[in-house]
Amino acid sequence: MSAQADPAEEFKDFAYIVSHDLAGPVRSMVAFSQLLKESLPRPETPEDQLHLELIIESGQKLGDMIGGLLAFSRLNTVPRSRTLVELEIVVARCYMQLQAQLDATKGHFNYPRMPEVMADTQQMHTVFFSLLDNAIKFRKPDQAPDIRIRCDKGNDFWEFSISDNGIGIDPMFYDDVFRPLRKLHTDEVYPGVGMGLTLTRKIILAHGGNIWLEPSEMGGLKVSFSLPR
Rank of each mutant, 00 (worst) to 15 (best):
I89H: 04
A92Y: 09
S28E: 11
Q60Y: 03
I17W: 14
T186K: 10
P141D: 05
V177N: 04
V91N: 04
F11Q: 13
I55S: 02
P171Q: 00
P141E: 04
P25D: 00
E116S: 01
A5C: 02
C151M: 12
L40K: 10
L227G: 00
L35M: 14
S81C: 04
L181M: 12
I89T: 10
A144P: 08
P171N: 03
A3L: 15
K153L: 10
L62M: 13
K140H: 10
E10N: 09
L87G: 07
A100N: 09
D142I: 02
L205S: 05
E88K: 13
H108T: 13
N210D: 15
R182L: 05
F157N: 09
I147W: 02
V189S: 11
E47G: 05
E38P: 01
R113Y: 13
L36S: 13
P228T: 01
Q60C: 03
G68C: 07
V127P: 02
T45R: 08
F129G: 00
R27F: 05
F160D: 02
A8K: 08
S33H: 01
Y95W: 11
G154C: 09
Q60E: 15
F178Y: 14
L205Q: 10
S163Q: 14
N76K: 15
P46Y: 11
P145Q: 05
D103T: 15
A100I: 12
D120K: 02
R150T: 14
P171G: 03
R139Y: 06
E10L: 15
R113P: 06
S161G: 09
D176C: 02
D156M: 05
T126E: 08
A3Y: 14
M29F: 13
A92H: 12
P79L: 08
P25T: 06
M96E: 15
S216W: 12
V78G: 01
F129K: 10
G154R: 11
I149D: 09
V78S: 07
G208V: 05
E217N: 08
F128I: 05
P180F: 04
L70W: 08
Q123F: 04
H207R: 00
E217I: 12
R201Y: 06
R179I: 03
D120S: 14
K183V: 03
A8F: 00
L54Q: 12
K106W: 12
G59K: 01
L199F: 05
F32R: 12
L102H: 11
R113K: 15
D142W: 07
R27Y: 01
E217S: 08
Q97L: 14
S161N: 13
V90A: 00
G194I: 08
F157Y: 12
L35R: 13
Q143T: 09
G194H: 02
